[in-house]
Design a protein around this nucleic acid. Structure first.
Lengths: 199, 199
DNA sequence: GTTGGCATGTAACCGGTTACATGATTTT
DNA sequence: AAAATCATGTAACCGGTTACATGCCAAC
């Protein structure tokens, strides 16, 4: 259902668009928040048209179909936004890596965490440059409205990246603090299972 | 591939277990980080056994099969943890909601954000109580090892929840600041599309 | 006239969820 | 004897990814 909502949201906020347009928006603006390829978008648009949530408003050159949101579609979108309790089915590989990283030797764990941190820092820089690009009007006194779409989400993502970076830094520091000072103990890189034979 | 890694990780950290045991661990300890139902776990265990990553170590009462990780399995796990660059395919409905919330009227948006914040605060409290329950030994001077599994992940999740709560609080404040003071402008609850007809 | 971007779609596959299905053992 | 829990599996469905397939139009 979420792809449907994302599409309705884009049509509501930015006006009529074709499947191609929407796919490109998913690649650019929305990509930090949701991803979808055209191969899922086209069938979904067809189903939504059949369901009366959107309608073909115009047909263009290369078989281009421009879709617009219908009142039914707006109602559906509103219902979701107002009534939907977000079921947070987190399934990010990063979480899993955070969970399993203690299985590695300290030096290895630190190396892995450094790599993760580097990636997040690059991502953060990218998002910050995006934020800097936003027109000043949006940062100032402009009134509430669809133009704001994305500003809060960007802030949201920025905070997430920052939290990830902080976690990595603190975890690296913690491992270094605990690491046995004896260099000989940095032994063979094998998972040690003897310490906890059972749960 | 990630379910496979999660299963290998559990077997490496906590020793041999049955599919049933693993499914229960997914419900409890791992659930904050990764979810999987038994209907995916059993076939995956079968495939991993066929691939030599795990092996049936014992058979119990009700057809119970206890699996243990093999050297090949450990190697696979290590390879993933060391070499895997996390492809962060975030697809959390919360992100989407953050993105679309400006489509609502200020009052509505605030109500939605408050609800989200409440949920995260409950989750945070739950995680904090989990953290408090951890044996003191783990917080002190214990050496690096598989016993640490979960402590960093818990910290990770705590930081995420806190960042979400902060974002919601600041966003609510921002909307309130911008909201037109005139009560009459809190008009019909319809998505206004006139302000931005095209991207 | 050829390259590149516009534009739409389908098919195979993969991983996850929900529901179906069965039966053994232990506890009350 | 009944209920709860242990324990394993399969099937239908759904959503997403990758790859396949086609063709139009504009620019160089």
């Amino acid at each position: 259902m979420s792809l449907r909502i994302a599409l309705l949201g884009l049509l509501a906020a930015a006006g009529p668009a074709s499947g191609y347009d929407l796919a490109k928006k998913f690649e650019t603006s929305v990509s930090h928040v949701w991803q979808a390829g055209h191969s899922r978008i086209y069938p979904e648009l067809a189903r939504m048209t059949a369901g009366g949530l959107i309608a073909v408003e115009a047909e263009g050159p290369r078989g281009r179909k421009t879709y617009g949101i219908t009142p039914d579609g707006e109602a559906e979108l509103r219902r979701w936004l107002l009534g939907h309790t977000p079921v947070s089915t987190r399934r990010d590989e990063t979480d899993l890596q955070a969970f399993l990283v203690p299985l590695l030797e300290p030096d290895e764990a630190i190396a892995v965490l450094r790599r993760m941190k580097d990636g997040w820092e690059r991502k953060l820089a990218e998002l910050e440059s995006l934020q800097a690009m936003r027109p000043a009007a949006e940062n100032a006194t402009e009134e509430w409205g669809p133009g704001w779409l994305g500003a809060y989400a960007l802030d949201f993502r920025l905070r997430m990246e920052q939290a990830l970076i902080d976690w990595a830094a603190d975890t690296i520091a913690d491992i270094e603090r605990r690491r046995p000072a004896d260099p000989a103990s940095t032994g063979p890189a094998v998972i040690d299972m003897t310490a906890s034979p059972a749960s």
